[in-house]
Amino acid sequence: MEELLKVNNVSMVFGGLRAVSNFSMEINKGELIGLIGPNGAGKTTAFNMLTGVYEPTEGTITFEGNLVNGKKPYQVTAMGMARTFQNIRLFSELSVIDNVKIAYNMHVQYSLPEAIWRFGRYFNEEEEITNKAMSLLKIFKLDGKADEQAKNLPYGEQRRLEIARAMATQPKLLLLDEPAAGMNPQETHELMEMIRWIRDEFKLSILLIEHDMSLVMNVCERIYVLEYGFCIANGVPEEIKNNKRVIEAYLGEEVS
């Protein structure tokens, strides 16, 4: 299998606090990986290092062989990683379709004068962007609400829109930060079906942070477990389920 992301012994230190210590992970093309751990274990911090929000204090991160350390978030996105946020961060005053169109901006070819004077590539590309955005919305069953303000969508649909928006950047690796948070079981189930379908359809890799254990166990092929910033286990769901340290640290009676 081809390696996509390699995290090599990274640590993140805030003042005196080691939020993540010597964390290593690999993600191969087409894999669906889970990252779990109790609250405050450093999952989101790990995410933030991957996406350039924080620069790791130690260690290296490479994506397709290119170094991620020191890159700004928008550069990381351009390399082919896209993410969603634990606390939804939509462009809430803008329409649903504009939310998605903005994520295509990176790939826009037309120049500023072409935009202002509306000639050359402007019209064709705008049409293309709109069509692409619409078809993405259709996949996420949001096409009927394309012109609504994002803030007016119900919670579950906002979560879906965030994923749609991340997909519009055309990533090779999609990072989802607790996408099912606050969803009811029915919605969660649909979401998981969708995540798996996206992976197969778009042939990308997905890294998923999740609290809902059953969900991660069902959908992910491999799982990493963080506790107090340390990676205490990794492996296929069966292994994780039976790992003593994981059970002690996190699962407790949930999986007994």
Binding site: T51, V53, K72, P73, Y74, T77, A78, A82, R83, F85, R89, L90, F91, S92, E93, L94, D98, K101, I102, A103, Y104, N105, M106, V108, Y110, L112, A115, I116, W117, R118, Y122, E126, I129, R165, A166, A168, T169
Partner: peptide
């Protein structure tokens, strides 16, 4: 000029920055 700017990709990037700077940056906007 400004109306057309806002209705183009660079203009939408500006709107995105207003709405949520962190999300904008994550969507590949410098």
């Amino acid at each position: 000029f400004i109306k057309n700017f806002i209705n183009s990709a660079p203009g939408r990037s500006c709107l995105a920055i207003r709405e949520n700077e962190i999300a904008a940056e994550t969507m590949g906007i410098d």
